[in-house]
Design a binder for these strands. Structure first.
Lengths: 249, 249
DNA sequence: CGCGATTTTGAGAGCCGTCAAGATACGTGG
DNA sequence: CCACGTATCTTGACGGCTCTCAAAATCGCG
């Protein structure tokens, strides 16, 4: 344990997340506690599993850098992507609260994760109720994102779905500083999009083409550009809502 | 407040939920706290809204009796049912953690709800960390259910979906004592099923007919009977997992 | 340059949605 | 007790959105 601490490259005081003004500040006590809570760091590359379906991870993570996705699969291999994890997001809470994961998480880019031991989550509840509340906040927000995603997959048309997921990723990326000049680097495959939206790869490709033809987006070489935000939102049947300031651990 | 307390018909000591052996016990301190946390009761009938989309409820509820559903709608009226609330489930956590709801909840039967004031949730975190942990547990479980639901709507076929939702409701009902002789009263309309599964009403009806034809279920007069559990599970592409013991507030 | 991964395009089938109408059930008022 | 209206369920016809199959084009990389 202490060895791992010695390997930490990013002390909590200079955690890159603290620079994001969408994330709330810690007070001194909270910062001190988080430092003792932090157990190490994990660096992994694209395609690497962070947690596996059906396995039982002893860790809880906060994303410091990079992008990952959460997914479930059926016995015959059909895959559904549930959500994406971006900087500031908590990964693996389910395994800390239950005993198993029931979903997998896989990295899309090089990632830097902050590692917490799950068996000390309880001490966070007894010693730092404000942070415990933040954990609940994060869980409730994940639930909210899933609600919206379920509405999309269940009730939106293919074109609306593609527009939705693009806007969703853009908006979340924007809130953590990943957007410059209406552009964001999205290392997603069309297969990922398809698995996110409950569509086939072929149909996703054709629908994406149609969306490009409207001129409201451009997407090539892993770079997504939003050219007409209002039109995109109209197609997706949604409204632009600025993200509230949010906590992180 | 004190007036409302006078109207309480069910003191916490004899809360009907405590009889369910799938729910965990309170210790004395927890019980004492919950008694002060409880603010009153709410009785409503079928079709009544418990919380409205886009509104901001000052309350948090625990279902004591009855069945409700959580949903979201698009501007043009398309509706997606997100989940069902059964005895022991917490309703309205999102509005306690954020400021708005973003989803509606509507009763399907006569319901009895235990009412908590949302502005006292914080005191639960500072005074009773074990209960705070339980709230997180419940939020994480809701997330788990949404994960499974999203996989279903995104990647299962119509027949698999119908089998899934039937099994899902049966299994959850079973864990709270609603099942007798493989039968459960389900006051759902086929429109509810359709909105749960992301299917049209007509196609849901035809798929349900096909499922009935396999002989593994019977459903008439709001009573669902499971006649061949193994076959149903096979059709739904899932496994029977017993629910773990769970907390409630 | 060659190979695997990804993207694109076309063709045809089929699952599922929409439209429409009839049947059944249920509650209400006469 | 019957008439009637509303909600729900059922069924058929038809269209189209989306899937699968298949192959070509493009890209990334050693």
């Amino acid at each position: 344990m202490s060895k791992k601490n010695a390997l930490q490259t990013v002390p909590c005081e200079s955690c890159p997340l603290r620079k994001l003004d969408t994330l709330r500040e810690f007070d001194e006590d909270e910062l001190a506690f988080v430092k003792t809570f932090k157990h190490g760091e994990l660096t992994i590359g694209p395609g690497a599993p962070i947690v596996m379906e059906e396995s039982n991870s002893p860790h809880l993570y906060t994303v410091l850098q990079g992008l990952a996705f959460r997914y479930k699969t059926l016995p015959d291999g059909r895959r559904q992507i549930l959500n994406y994890a971006m900087p500031g997001d908590l990964v693996g809470l389910q395994s800390s609260v239950f005993d198993a994961m029931n979903h997998g998480v896989e990295a899309l880019t090089d990632m830097l994760l902050c590692v917490f031991p799950r068996d000390r989550l309880w001490s966070l509840y007894t010693k730092r109720p404000s942070l415990a509340f933040d954990v609940t906040w994060l869980a409730a927000r994940e639930e909210q994102l899933l609600d919206e995603h379920l509405l999309t997959v269940g009730r939106r048309t293919a074109l609306e779905r593609v527009a939705f997921v693009i806007w969703h990723l853009y908006r979340r990326g924007r809130s953590v500083g990943l957007v410059t000049a209406n552009k964001i680097v999205l290392p997603l495959t069309q297969q990922h999009l398809a698995d996110t939206l409950g569509l086939s790869l072929v149909h996703t490709n054709k629908t994406l083409k149609k969306l490009r033809a409207t001129g409201c987006i451009a997407w090539a070489d892993r770079v997504l550009e939003i050219r007409d935000q209002d039109k995109l939102l109209e197609i997706a049947q949604m409204e632009d809502t600025e993200e509230a300031r949010r906590p992180f651990i």
